[in-house]
Amino acid sequence: MSIQHFRVALIPFFAAFCLPVFAHPETLVKVKDAEDQLGARVGYIELDLNSGKILESFRPEERFPMMSTFKVLLCGAVLSRVDAGQEQLGRRIHYSQNDLVEYSPVTEKHLTDGMTVRELCSAAITMSDNTAANLLLTTIGGPKELTAFLHNMGDHVTRLDRWEPELNEAIPNDERDTTMPAAMATTLRKLLTGELLTLASRQQLIDWMEADKVAGPLLRSALPAGWFIADKSGAGERGSRGIIAALGPDGKPSRIVVIYTTGSQATMDERNRQIAEIGASLIKHW
């Protein structure tokens, strides 16, 4: 067993022997301040990774656009098919120029040779490549099948209805392509620590998230040296922004954090800054 596999296998073990965790309302004060600064709703939840206990939450059962955070769930569904012998990570998928959609920095470079399922998941999570996500959605049967996968996990809230990039439209009061912070946090925890996926697939999923290259201005910008984070960000229309993450000190994750916002007129930089400040408060009061 590799060191990384050992780390993920012992996530519940280490967490069980940690000192009790206590909620700190100071972080919620910052979440509410972010709402004021952005002029928009902000949803927040913080779960203990081992027990699933909610440590703090704000608007945990209000719907927010998922945006690209759905790509972690998508690759979880792909990995479940791999575990069941219905898919192979090494299978190569070929596609054409007509398949390319807006923001496809990886797939646009491989029109000639195609990409493997493993490479597509890596591109979808680490670079948020939209064509990679659409190609992977095709392998599982489309958005409705991802929703069905989530329902089978016990998540009857999260739903995907459309493809990239239309799913980022974020129309107010439109339930399409949305989740709730509580539902997303619980589902992410199941994917990373539950028995739904094999140990190898859980490790692969967290490795992809740990290698995320496009979430630097968010929670990662607030992390002290030595902290662990595996995350996936999302951005959408109407001032929408979000991030889902597993993080913790001492090089291992111990909490799940989900943050979503929508309806702001603020710039992307300002949305990023507010999420980073929430992260800084979380870490300060850990």
Rank of each mutant, 00 (worst) to 15 (best):
S104F: 02
P224Y: 04
M1Y: 01
P65W: 01
D83E: 10
K144C: 12
L111P: 07
A123L: 03
K213M: 14
R63Y: 07
E277V: 12
R92N: 09
L188Y: 08
Q86Y: 12
R81S: 09
L19Q: 15
P253Q: 08
V21L: 07
R41G: 05
Q203R: 14
A77V: 11
Y260C: 04
M127N: 08
E62V: 08
A246M: 15
E35L: 02
M209S: 02
A230N: 01
R255V: 06
T187Q: 05
H151C: 10
D48L: 04
G226Y: 07
L282A: 08
L282F: 08
E62A: 09
W208M: 08
W227M: 03
R273I: 10
V117P: 04
L223H: 03
R255C: 03
T262W: 08
L49Q: 05
A211T: 10
S80E: 12
E195S: 14
T138Y: 13
H5G: 06
K284N: 11
T116Y: 05
Q203I: 11
V101D: 14
R159E: 06
H156K: 15
R91Q: 07
G43W: 00
S264K: 05
S68W: 00
V31Q: 01
D212I: 02
E108P: 07
A84D: 12
E169V: 12
S264C: 10
F58E: 05
P224T: 06
L223M: 11
A222S: 14
F70Y: 05
N134L: 02
P181H: 00
A183S: 11
F22C: 13
V106W: 07
C75S: 07
G76W: 05
E166T: 11
I11E: 03
N98D: 11
D269M: 11
N272Q: 05
R7Q: 14
L137I: 10
P165K: 08
P217H: 10
R255M: 05
T261I: 12
F14Y: 09
G248V: 01
T116F: 04
L150G: 05
R238T: 09
W227F: 08
G85R: 10
F64R: 01
A148I: 13
D36H: 11
A123D: 02
I125R: 00
F13S: 09
I3R: 09
L19V: 15
A230F: 02
L89H: 05
A16L: 14
A9V: 10
E164Y: 04
P143N: 04
R91W: 04
L191M: 14
D155H: 01
V8G: 08
Y44V: 07
G43K: 00
M1C: 01
S281F: 15
A211D: 15
A266Y: 08
I93V: 13
S201P: 03
Q204M: 14
P20C: 05
P181K: 00
D99W: 07
N134R: 04
R41H: 15
R118Q: 13
L136E: 01
Q204E: 14
L247H: 01
D231T: 04
V117I: 10
Q265H: 14
V82C: 11
N134W: 02
E61T: 13
M67A: 14
T107V: 08
S68G: 00
L192M: 15
H285N: 14
H94G: 10
H5C: 09
D250Y: 12
P224M: 04
P25Q: 13
E61L: 13
T267N: 12
S221K: 13
P25H: 13
H285E: 10
L191R: 00
I244Y: 02
R202L: 05
I54F: 11
R63T: 09
F13H: 06
K190H: 13
T112P: 12
F228Q: 06
I259P: 00
W208R: 01
R176D: 06
W286C: 01
L196W: 14
N168V: 06
V82P: 01
L223E: 02
P165Y: 05
G154W: 04
P105Q: 06
L150H: 04
W163L: 13
P224F: 03
Q37W: 13
I125Q: 02
F228M: 10
T186Y: 13
G194R: 09
T27F: 04
T262G: 05
L55V: 10
A15E: 04
P217A: 14
P181T: 05
F13I: 10
D48I: 04
S51E: 12
Q88A: 13
T27M: 06
T179S: 09
H151V: 13
R7G: 11
F228E: 04
A230T: 02
Q88T: 13
Y95D: 01
A15H: 08
I278H: 00
T131A: 11
N173P: 07
E195R: 11
R118T: 14
E169K: 13
I229N: 02
N98C: 07
L150Q: 05
R220Q: 04
R176A: 08
P65M: 02
P20E: 12
R220T: 03
V78M: 09
N98K: 14
T198Q: 11
V8R: 13
I259M: 08
M209E: 00
D174N: 06
L219I: 14
A215P: 05
K252D: 09
M115S: 04
E61F: 10
R91M: 06
I244R: 00
I275N: 00
G239C: 03
Y260A: 02
M115N: 03
R220E: 03
R220N: 03
S57P: 02
K30P: 02
A222F: 08
R159M: 07
Y95F: 13
A246L: 15
L191C: 07
H110G: 08
R41N: 10
D155N: 06
G242W: 00
S201K: 07
D48R: 04
R92H: 10
P12V: 11
V42S: 03
M184P: 00
I256F: 06
H94A: 10
E35C: 05
E119K: 06
P60S: 13
D231S: 05
P253R: 08
P217V: 11
F58V: 09
E270K: 13
Q265L: 14
L79D: 01
I171K: 14
K213I: 11
C18I: 01
A200C: 10
S264Q: 06
S201Y: 05
E62D: 10
V42T: 06
D48Q: 08
D250I: 10
L219E: 03
I275Y: 05
S96I: 10
S57E: 13
I3V: 08
L136F: 00
G194K: 09
I278A: 02
Y260N: 01
G142H: 04
F228K: 08
M1G: 00
G90F: 10
S96P: 07
E56C: 08
Y260V: 06
I283T: 09
M1S: 01
S80N: 12
L192H: 04
L136C: 04
A16C: 13
R59D: 02
L160I: 13
E56S: 11
P181D: 00
I229V: 10
A23W: 03
A148H: 13
G234V: 00
A246R: 02
I93Q: 05
N152H: 15
R118V: 10
F17I: 13
V78T: 07
E277C: 07
S57M: 13
V8M: 11
M180A: 14
T112M: 10
K284P: 03
V78Y: 03
S221Q: 12
T126E: 11
L136T: 04
A124I: 05
A235Q: 04
L197N: 05
A77K: 11
L74S: 03
A84Y: 10
R238P: 09
I45S: 06
I206S: 12
M66Y: 04
N173I: 09
H110T: 05
A123H: 03
E210G: 09
E164N: 00
I93K: 04
Q97F: 15
L10K: 05
R159Q: 09
N130W: 00
K232Y: 00
F64Q: 02
A170M: 07
S221I: 10
G39R: 14
Q88D: 13
A225G: 13
A246S: 09
I283E: 04
S57I: 07
E166V: 12
L135H: 04
I45N: 03
R176Y: 07
R91E: 06
E195K: 10
R59W: 04
S57Q: 13
V31Y: 01
L191Y: 07
A132S: 08
Q4A: 12
W286N: 03
M184I: 14
V117N: 03
E102G: 09
S68N: 00
R91N: 08
M115F: 04
F64G: 00
L191D: 00
D129E: 01
E26Q: 10
A34C: 10
I45A: 12
P217I: 06
L47T: 09
D177L: 01
S68V: 00
T116L: 08
Q86S: 12
W227V: 02
Y95S: 02
Q4V: 08
P217N: 12
G76C: 06
D174P: 02
A123Y: 04
V72T: 09
L247Y: 03
D113Q: 13
V257K: 00
A148Q: 14
A276I: 07
A280P: 01
T178C: 07
